[in-house]
Every structure is written in C-alpha cells, then in structure tokens.
Amino acid sequence: MEHLLEIEGLEVSFNDTAHALRGIDMFMDTGEIHGLVGESGSGKTVTSTCIIGLLPVPPGKVNGGSMLFKGREILGLSEAQRRRLRGREIAVVFQEPARYLNPALRVGEQITEMLILHLGLEKQQAVGKALELIDLVGLKGGKKILRRYPHELSGGMKQRAMIAMAISCNPSLLIADEPTTALDVTLQLQILRLIQSLKRRFSMGILFISHDLAVVNEIADRISVIYAGRIVESTTKARLFDEPLHPYTKLLLLSIPDAGKRGTRLKTIPGTVPDAEHIPSGCAFHPRCPLAEEICQHQDPETANYGKTGELHTAACHMIGKKWIDS
C-alpha cells in the first residue's frame, strides 16, 4: 500500500561531524495523526525540516535514505519543485506564533498571499476564502481579524491564525511542530481539539511533533519515539501506553506527571540526550539505560517488529523481554 509519507533510512549530518539523524524510518497515512516524541536535541525538528525541504545546506547534508511523498521521491527534487510542495501539499504550524508570524504584515495578507500564489486566486476571491478559513479555525470577527496585525491578537488567536494559514491550500500533510508548547494549558486543549477537527474535515495526515507524551496522548493515533536521531519505538497510541517495549519509552511514560499520585516524587530520566557530535557507541541510549548489558555498548540494535498478528509495533533494543526492575 502506498503511504502518504514514507521515510527510510534518512541520515542527516551537520558539518559532517554532527550526526543529527542516523537512519530515520517512519511512515504516515492520510487521516492519521502521528505523534513524533522525543527530548530536545533528539532530531524531531531536523526531521520536520527535511520533510518540508528547508534543511540549510550547508552546514546540513542528507547522507542517505529516501523520502516518498504520495509515492514520489522528494529528497532529490530541485528547490523550485520543493517550493511548489511547500504550503500547498506540505504545510507547517510552528511553535511560537508570536515569532513565526511576520510582525509587519496584516493577518489577512499573510493568509491571502498563499492563496494567490498557490491556487492562483484573484485578490477578492482570496479574501473570501481567508474569511472562511478564519471562521473555520474559530477566529471571531471576520474582516476585522484580517486587518489586524499579529501583535494585536492574543497568543491563542495568533496560533489559530497560523493554523488558518497552514490549512489554506488544503495540504495533504500538516506538520505541527510543538504547536501548543508556547500556550497556556487551557488553550492547549482547544488548539488540540481544533487540529483534530480539521484533520477530519480536510482528510490530512498530521505529523504532531512534541516533547510531551501527555500532549501527544491527547491527540495522536500512532506514536514514534525518537532518540539521538533514530526512531527507537513506533506503534499505535494504545499499544505504546499499554505495552511499551523500549526502556526509553518506559522511562518517558513514568515521567508523565500523574494527578492521582500527588506527593510522590516525579520520576526523571538521569542524564541528557547525547549531542549529535558525540553519539555513544552501540545503542545510543545505553549510558542512561537501566537494563544495559555489554552488548548494548558495542552493537546498535536493529529495528524489529514485535507486534502480534499483523499489528505493527517496532522497536530497536537488545533487551526486549528482559524484566523491568522498577527502582
């Protein structure tokens, strides 16, 4: 079956010394929200930058792998071809709308310029379409909103405007790069619900990038966990939460704050993500892993499928099945 997006063995380095991505394998389908979870520095943003085709080269460099979008290899496309995909087929909602919206252009202008460029609409038609869009993302005020500058909108409104911009050309793939991280908790949920409703309406695939498993739990259908430039575990949300296989996933799950367990100390994962210039030998996670044995220091584990009866549940770990000692 043809996937909406299929990435295989994607390797990216910076200045030839920092290995940001070390063979990313993942796929996404239409109508799916795919959560990509990892700590900062794990390669989430580099992955999304590669998908939209904005990896700065140099210092960045794609060293290998393939990326099929609707069955078409997009890694080798020319810049002009990539540009035509951006915004039209693959759109992005960024983390901090306050910084990612142009302060000197009206919201309306920032939406309509895409419609005019990609869909060839006349100015008047574009304004009409922009009005529909802002209504769709829950911005009340119609034309008045279009005439506003970003700083005249609240944080939540700005993010809604950004989402309106991203979905304006009806893209097949929407990348949401930590879209709620900069928002209040009450707003977070509203934005998550909005993204979900838009997915249904537009039948898009959504790549939802976050460092927060709790947020991803609210919204994702499937989840991939990324660590030091590799996907270490990938499966449905239900399976990941019920039967995590990789020790890193287990530790991440344990570190989610639980309102039912007040007064207990929150679990943290000792150590930090290795920087891309100094990836440990063998399994990159072994220095922080409570289960690590000698083999983990020398051999990087292969990714294998552990799902039962046709279900996909991939993980890359030597110690799967080993008893988990809760310390």
Binding site: R86, G87, Y100, N102, M114, M165
Partner: peptide
Amino acid sequence: EYVITARAKGLTERM
C-alpha cells in the same frame, strides 16, 4: 523565525 514561516509557506525567495 517569520522568514522560516514565509519559506515554509512556499513563497518565492523574492517574496
């Protein structure tokens, strides 16, 4: 950052 957004929107370099 807004320049990244502009590029991600598929605008031409000139724009």
